[in-house]
Design a protein around this nucleic acid. Structure first.
Lengths: 190, 190
DNA sequence: GTCTATAATTCGATAGAC
DNA sequence: GTCTATCGAATTATAGAC
């Protein structure tokens, strides 16, 4: 399909609104009407460009962790570097809508959970494999354990908003969680 | 209010069905009709006894971690004991509906998130304070960090169902995560 | 105590005029 | 490309008969 500039502007406005609402309210809580309203377009435009609600969600989910941007640190400081990388993505002015979207929706939406699995098996596990120079099976196990900690941090800080976890500055969290990630990366596995 | 035996049986049947469905489908995905159907009663009975959907949810949320049942282990094995306690609650035949309910609903429901905060500030933090004999502020910080790991484990294993985390037996997970919990309990804080 | 009937919304999706 | 009008389904919730 080819699109004119006009339609392209509408498409991106819809997508931006959808990302924001899916991230804030999850899949079920987001309605096509609200997305259209926030984007300033007619609800039928959403259907026209994205067919249905699932198509819109599928387009909105596009999480790149950009782990390749992480400057290769010495092996023994990899854990803290990873923790810092994730926290810096999540914090900041425009907080990472992609991860919040998956975090909020994967509890009740199969497609979101699948996307989360894809991200954390392909991107995280493959990064771990490259960084450690280990086989894919060991990389998957280590990446899985790393994910329990990093996703748990995101879940408690941004979704549940547990007061002591919210109160800690990102820098302090990176120093607390870093050694744990390091342990999962290079420590003994049971 | 006083209730007869007949109404009491209906009430508990409704509550059991509600717990199961809220745990599986979250707040938005659960409908009063489905709850009534599973409980084998008329939908209007649900309204009669629990006023509205929020009242039903409020009644269904009642999470006791039973940390007082945990036999006091030596201080240096507390981490693994806690990890094992949580995993043994979550695993097993009838898996812990209460935590799944909160886990699945707190992403998009404010009441569920509040309940999760209550549980992990009161029950977990107070347990940590007693077990370590430290002040409430330190206990809250340590309990918060412990929660990032334990909730993250539950989230990745039972909600996202990350393959490598699902594949590990509970015993292996306890041995992997135990030292981390131990570190948050008794290690240095930044 | 239990159930029928239905009100009042809301949502996703479609058809078609312009 | 954009919008109006609307369908059909599902939902929470209420009123009232039995």
């Amino acid at each position: 399909m080819a699109f004119t500039e006009r339609s392209e502007a509408t498409r991106t406005a819809i997508l931006g609104a959808a990302r924001k609402l899916f991230a804030e309210q999850g899949f079920a809580g987001t309605t096509i009407r609200k997305v259209a309203s926030l984007a300033g377009v007619d609800p039928s435009m959403v259907m026209r460009y994205y067919v249905n609600k699932e198509g819109l969600f599928r387009a909105a989910v596009n999480l790149r962790l950009n782990l390749e941007e992480l400057p290769a640190p010495p092996r023994e400081r990899l854990g803290e570097a990873m923790a810092r990388h994730f926290l810096s993505r999540w914090e900041g002015d425009l907080s990472d809508e992609a991860i919040m979207l998956l975090l909020r929706s994967s509890s009740t939406n199969a497609l979101a959970a699948q996307s989360m699995r894809d991200v954390f098996t392909s991107q995280v596990a493959s990064f771990v494999g490259r960084a450690l120079g280990c086989g894919p099976e060991e990389a998957a196990r280590r990446a899985g354990l790393v994910s329990t900690q990093l996703l748990g941090l995101a879940f408690t800080r941004y979704v549940v908003r547990l007061p002591p976890v919210v109160a800690m500055p990102a820098e302090e969290l990176a120093r607390s969680v870093g050694p744990v990630v390091q342990h999962y990366l290079t420590g003994d596995l049971p």
